[in-house]
């Protein structure tokens, strides 16, 4: 993408300015704010209890007696379960990206900056993790660890460490050989100062862009693990778990059965829109 030089006087926050002009980013941001806002403010949006079931109200259609989105297979309010469940789904989707960025980013920084044997040791281990397709590794790890929310977060974080480490390593290696780093070292700066002042600033951009792109995948995978019975456990609400439980109801209440997936899809779409815009605005090549 061509990026025109910003006019004089508008040089501050160029990335934010470019993103604010991107219709995709605006759309994605609105979607994200609505979803996250509604999920956080769940008690204000709906008065129903997400755990309260009723045999008489099973699988009712939308707008049935105040149940805006109908009810699930145990007669619980769908909207309430989607909103409260979104808290867990978003957390399990988002936390691994944060953890993996911190660990993978640091490892990549160390590998890229010190090079040589340190680089070899770190990157060869990462290569092995890279040898697994992401879905397979996530399922394998959380399957072996025994499921549950904590293990799902650990499994997803382990999946994302290797790719983030690679991005951080290549960005760091690129900067390390530039003249200004050599100049800083010649003028007596220590490793800590060089990393803090010169290297991290160059490496953080690509890492943030890459990590933002992982958010969408992470949400889909987190809900997917619950869908397979490896993540959140019933009766706790979660989008993937709801989708799996309502699969039995596709013949009776198809709309209800598809709803939790709509939530996953919209969240994933919103993250992708924002992340694409961020990548374009920062002009980082994928």
């Amino acid at each position: 993408m061509d990026v025109a030089a910003p006019p004089i006087g508008q040089a501050r926050w160029p990335v934010v300015r470019r993103m604010a002009r991107d219709p995709g980013v605006i759309g994605g941001m609105i979607l994200l704010v609505v979803i996250v806002g509604a999920v956080l403010a769940a008690p204000l949006v709906t008065g129903f209890d997400p755990y309260r079931s009723s045999i008489l109200l099973r699988l009712k259609p939308m707008l049935y007696r105040g149940h805006l989105l109908g009810t699930d297979e145990l007669g619980r309010d769908m909207l309430a379960r989607l909103l409260y469940g979104g808290r867990i789904t978003l957390l399990v989707g988002f936390a691994p990206v944060l953890v993996a960025s911190a660990i993978g980013g640091t490892l990549g920084l160390i590998a890229g900056y010190f090079g040589g044997g340190v680089n070899m040791a770190i990157m060869r281990v990462m290569d092995v993790f890279y040898a697994f397709p992401s879905v397979l590794l996530a399922v394998a790890l959380s399957g072996a660890l025994g499921g549950g929310v904590q293990n799902a977060v650990v499994a997803l974080a382990l999946v994302f460490i290797a790719p983030i480490c690679r991005v951080a390593e290549s960005a760091t290696t690129e900067v390390r050989h530039l003249d200004f780093v050599a100049a800083a070292r010649a003028s007596g700066a220590g490793h800590g100062a060089i990393l803090r002042v010169h290297v991290i600033g160059h490496m953080i951009g690509p890492v943030v862009v890459y990590a933002s792109g992982l958010c969408s995948l992470s949400i889909v995978l987190a809900a997917g693990l619950s869908f397979l019975g490896l993540g959140v456990r019933p009766p706790e609400p979660d989008w993937g778990l709801m989708l799996s439980a309502l699969r039995q109801a596709v013949y009776v209440a198809p709309v209800n059965a598809a709803l939790p997936g709509v939530a996953i899809f919209l969240t994933s779409l919103a993250f992708n829109l924002v992340s694409d815009g961020l990548r374009d605005a920062m002009a980082v090549r994928s």
Binding site: V250, P254, A258, G261, N272
Partner: peptide, 22 residues
């Protein structure tokens, strides 16, 4: 963009609803 964002397991269920159930 939609292809990248869609959860496959949900797409499968939607297809079942469309082409098997309906």
């Amino acid at each position: 963009l939609c292809g990248l964002s869609v959860p496959q397991y949900w797409l499968g269920i939607v297809l079942v609803i469309l082409f098997s159930v309906t």
